[in-house]
């Protein structure tokens, strides 16, 4: 496989997720490529996080197929238990409201991410209990991988701090590093730039571009900050009320009338009660 080749990585087909009567995702299909950043955008409640939860096995989709292709092998994510999705299909994720192991140190967080590798090396604890050298060796390599990512996110000096005591921006980056330590094929990021200041946000963009170029994996990105989306994504999928309303290059999506409508809610006024509608119109006139 050539280094620059973009191969299909994830294929979402006819995904539907219902909670009782509520349809959170309604027949959504799209594809994401390797070595690409695919942004998923949409107003609040559009079903973006639900999509992630289906992908990472926290929800079982009502209908639909989620196919991940890695090393010429297909994985049907909707049929796998949650932990196997990370272990075998190699999908890693971060969470909208950061979920670090806050009383464990930064380094420990990164080692927990390499649990399956280490567990095998410790012969499911037995070899580790006896302190065999083979395990020590693997543990050292795990620490090295952690250190690699710590260097990337500038947290090496604070490696022995409790994760919960880090500043907010550091916690966001640590969560991404932790996901990367699982050595994923697909990285799903749920609003990684939320709450970051402009400088941190720029650093995050660089980090994501580096992951795409150097590690060469696919990234799925939920983001509200359109400047981030436009700057780094290769491909944008727009959801609204659980349906896909646009899919394509960032430029094309930006000018799509459907998308503009969803974001600005042009025709929403028509659904308002008459009294309020008149008020809104009067206000609009005054402004003019």
């Amino acid at each position: 496989m050539s280094a620059l080749q973009k191969t299909p990585l994830l294929e979402v087909q006819h995904l539907t997720m219902r909670f009782g009567g509520l349809v959170a995702i309604d027949d959504v299909s799209f594809a994401a490529n390797n070595r690409e950043i695919t942004a998923i955008i949409g107003p609040n409640g559009a079903g973006k996080t639900t999509l992630f939860n289906c992908l990472t096995g926290f929800y079982k989709p009502t209908v639909g197929c989620l196919k991940l292709t890695r090393d010429n092998e297909d994985y049907l994510l909707e049929r796998m238990p949650g932990h196997d999705i990370t272990k075998h299909a190699r999908v890693a994720r971060t969470f909208q409201n950061i979920r670090l192991f806050s009383r464990m140190t930064v380094l420990e967080n990164l080692l927990v991410a390499q649990h399956n590798k280490l567990q095998r090396a410790s012969a499911f604890t037995l070899a580790g209990l006896l302190g065999l050298p083979a395990y020590k060796h693997v543990e050292q390599s795990a620490v090295d991988l952690a250190r690699f990512w710590l260097d990337r996110i500038n947290l090496t000096a604070r490696a022995d701090f409790e994760a919960g005591n880090l500043p907010y921006g550091d916690q966001r980056r640590l969560e991404i590093a932790r996901a990367m330590c699982t050595e994923p094929a697909l990285l799903c990021l749920d609003e990684p730039a939320a709450g970051l200041n402009p400088r941190e946000s720029a650093a995050l963009n660089d980090l994501l571009l580096d992951i795409r170029e150097e590690i060469g994996i696919g990234i799925l990105l939920i983001e509200h900050d359109m400047s981030v989306v436009m700057r780094i994504s290769d491909h944008v999928v727009v959801l609204d009320y659980g349906r896909k309303i646009a899919d394509g290059e960032p430029e094309a999506v930006r000018n799509d009338p459907e998308v503009i409508k969803a974001y600005l809610g042009e025709e929403d006024t028509e659904e308002l009660p008459d009294v309020i509608k008149q008020d809104v119109e009067a206000a609009a006139k005054e402004e003019n």
Binding site: G57, F58, D84, T86, R99, L100, V112, H115, T125
Partner: peptide, 24 residues
């Protein structure tokens, strides 16, 4: 050992643990 760290990770946040491939 990884087992012990996984225990503590579960104590801290079991959802994050699962997302890292840990069989709860």
């Amino acid at each position: 050992l990884p087992l012990g760290r996984a225990w503590e990770a579960l104590r801290e946040d079991d959802i994050a643990s699962q997302s890292l491939g840990i069989n709860r």
